[in-house]
Design a protein around this nucleic acid. Sequence first.
DNA 1: TGTACATCAGTGAACGCGCGTTCACTGATGTAC
DNA 2: TGTACATCAGTGAACGCGCGTTCACTGATGTAC
Lengths: 206, 206
Amino acid sequence: MAIVTDRKPRQRNPRGQGEKLRDDIIEAASDLLADPASPPLTLRAVARGVGVAATSVYLHFDDVASLILAVAERRFGELAKQQDLALDGVVDPAERMRAGCLAYCEFGLAHPGNYQVMFVTQSEPLMAIPVEQMPGYAVFERLVDEVAAYQGLAPDAPEAFVTATIIWQQLHGIVSLRISRRRFPWPPLEPTVTDAITRILGAPTQ
Amino acid sequence: MAIVTDRKPRQRNPRGQGEKLRDDIIEAASDLLADPASPPLTLRAVARGVGVAATSVYLHFDDVASLILAVAERRFGELAKQQDLALDGVVDPAERMRAGCLAYCEFGLAHPGNYQVMFVTQSEPLMAIPVEQMPGYAVFERLVDEVAAYQGLAPDAPEAFVTATIIWQQLHGIVSLRISRRRFPWPPLEPTVTDAITRILGAPTQ
DNA sequence: TGTACATCAGTGAACGCGCGTTCACTGATGTAC
DNA sequence: TGTACATCAGTGAACGCGCGTTCACTGATGTAC
């Protein structure tokens, strides 16, 4: 994506809409991070991508780490939306599990570079956030709820939490291994996801 | 680890042992990458770590990516050794599965920064390697063998490959999620590993 | 209706720094004769 | 036993570049009176 050359002139936002630049910066950073093998993100590269002076990034972000955190949060929001779409109108708990997990993997593999950023190792801004506000926490909570529904448990049952954790680990393994070992002879995605979660969940207990 | 200050003088290797520097460089790079939140590795930082001129790194590595690949290969070798130790004298297939998987996770969590490097996204030198020589391939092959033994299958049975893949995904998920989400309330490692692989494997078919 | 002022949304030059890479060089140790 | 030469295991200065960060500045648009 986006080499040095794209310097569309970009005209200044009208009064009262200065926050629009924040959005543009996040999108430019996403683009630069789209390739999973992309070099470390720099503030100046982002500014070039937006078509703005390097100093303008400071108007909205303290540093590169905060910007990367914002990218991660936005992408998790999009992942949640994709899952909403995939689950819309689906009522069977087993089918909901399958559809939600598949949507997770498909999203991750469709945005490999951004997926990596979503699970980047702790930066200072990330460590300052309480665990329930961590990027991706809502996605995990949804998974716990789906597991509880599938297994006929209360949403706060410890067993649902444990099972959801194992599924999350599985989905994350599926996505991140396929990103980092592209030449491995991976089986097709959909049967793998179905097979794995079927093994982990066992038969439904409803 | 290892800030700028460590400039032990280091004396030149005796004749015929120039390859010793290669080892020292790999170890210095490992140290610099030990923290999972460490900044991008630079050639000059590695040289400082070894106590050698920046140019000396070129005597053994074409570039930083090749050096990182060498670190990954070495760490996979150590992982295999750790698994050897954990499996030594264990004969029960179920117990071997458990011990091998646990050793994998413990190794990864003991070396979080290096574990990330072992699964770093494709670099040019990595892409030039055939899949059977990829770092970690031997570890995966051992896993396939253990699965086959556990399930009473031939080592080249497709079912063993599929199951081993699902287990690998699970182990990688366990390790890398715990590295990148340190503040999540993870359950204790050992029961999680046992629980997960039991679900994935089902009852032994021997 | 003017007009002074405040605010907003940025700009642009300049700085010092660490980086990868090049190039010719060094000095100890072995080897041929 | 000498001695010339080759090889090995590095060194050290120099380069140009992109980076994060600072600082004072700009120019359009709204607001008070």
